[in-house]
Lab assay of single mutants.
Amino acid sequence: DRIFMTRTEALEFLLKAHQTAVDKIGHPSHKQTPADHAAIEALDRLLLDVRARRVDQFQINASAAQIIVTD
């Protein structure tokens, strides 16, 4: 599946995904793992790359739809 978004929409989408990941590892019942921190770092890099126009398409994980940034 493909989803087309403007750059602004894609950045909002990534910010929400980032916040969800941060909230998940901050929850008291969740045991933090290196994979959790790696996922947040990957989202940080992706946010910067989309914002800087170095990336025009991405996929958060293998089961997610491919996001295509349109400007």
Rank of each mutant, 00 (worst) to 15 (best):
D23P: 01
I68Y: 09
Q66K: 12
L14G: 00
A39F: 15
I40G: 02
T33M: 03
P28K: 07
D49G: 08
G26P: 03
V69D: 03
L43N: 00
I3V: 11
L46Q: 01
K31F: 15
P34C: 05
L48N: 15
K24H: 11
A10D: 00
T20E: 14
I3E: 03
T70A: 09
R45I: 08
D1S: 06
Q57F: 12
R54Q: 06
V22K: 09
S63H: 13
I3S: 03
A65Y: 13
A64M: 11
R54I: 11
A52W: 11
I60T: 03
T20P: 01
Q66T: 05
D49V: 03
R7C: 03
D56R: 12
T8D: 15
T8I: 13
D71P: 09
A35Q: 12
F58S: 00
L15C: 08
E41N: 11
K16F: 09
I68H: 05
H27I: 06
D49C: 06
Q66V: 15
Q19T: 06
R45Y: 03
R51H: 12
I68E: 04
R45H: 10
H37C: 08
Q19S: 06
D1V: 06
A52G: 07
H30F: 06
E41I: 12
R45S: 07
D56I: 10
A21F: 09
T20K: 13
D71V: 10
K31P: 14
T33Y: 08
L11F: 05
T6I: 03
R2P: 08
F13H: 09
M5F: 05
A10N: 00
D44G: 12
H27C: 05
V22T: 10
L46H: 01
R2T: 13
S29D: 08
D23F: 03
D36T: 03
E9T: 03
I40P: 02
L48S: 14
Q59L: 07
A42G: 06
L15K: 14
Q32G: 15
R2G: 05
L48A: 09
D71I: 14
E41Y: 10
M5K: 02
K16V: 10
A39T: 11
P28R: 03
T6A: 03
R45M: 08
V50K: 00
D36W: 05
R53D: 11
R2H: 11
A10K: 00
A35I: 05
D71L: 07
L14C: 00
T20S: 14
D36L: 15
R51D: 10
F13S: 02
E9N: 04
I3C: 05
I60L: 13
R51E: 12
F4C: 07
A17S: 04
S63K: 11
Q59D: 03
I25W: 03
K16L: 12
I40A: 06
A65G: 07
L48C: 06
S29L: 06
H30N: 10
L14E: 00
V69S: 01
I40Q: 03
N61Y: 11
A35K: 08
R45D: 04
R2F: 05
R53V: 08
T33S: 14
L47N: 01
D36I: 08
D36H: 05
I67F: 03
T6N: 08
L46Y: 02
E41F: 06
F58V: 01
L48P: 01
A39G: 07
H30W: 03
L47H: 03
V55W: 01
A21C: 05
Q57T: 11
F4Y: 14
D56C: 06
F58G: 00
Q59Y: 11
L14S: 00
T8L: 12
A42T: 13
A62L: 08
K31C: 05
N61A: 04
L15M: 12
I60M: 10
R2A: 09
R2K: 13
A52C: 14
L48M: 14
E41L: 09
I40C: 03
I67W: 02
E9M: 07
Q57E: 11
N61E: 13
Q59P: 02
D36S: 04
A17Y: 06
D71W: 04
D44Y: 15
M5S: 00
D56S: 15
D56E: 09
H18E: 01
R45W: 03
T8K: 14
G26S: 15
T6Q: 04
E41G: 07
E9F: 03
P34G: 03
D23K: 10
K24F: 10
P28I: 07
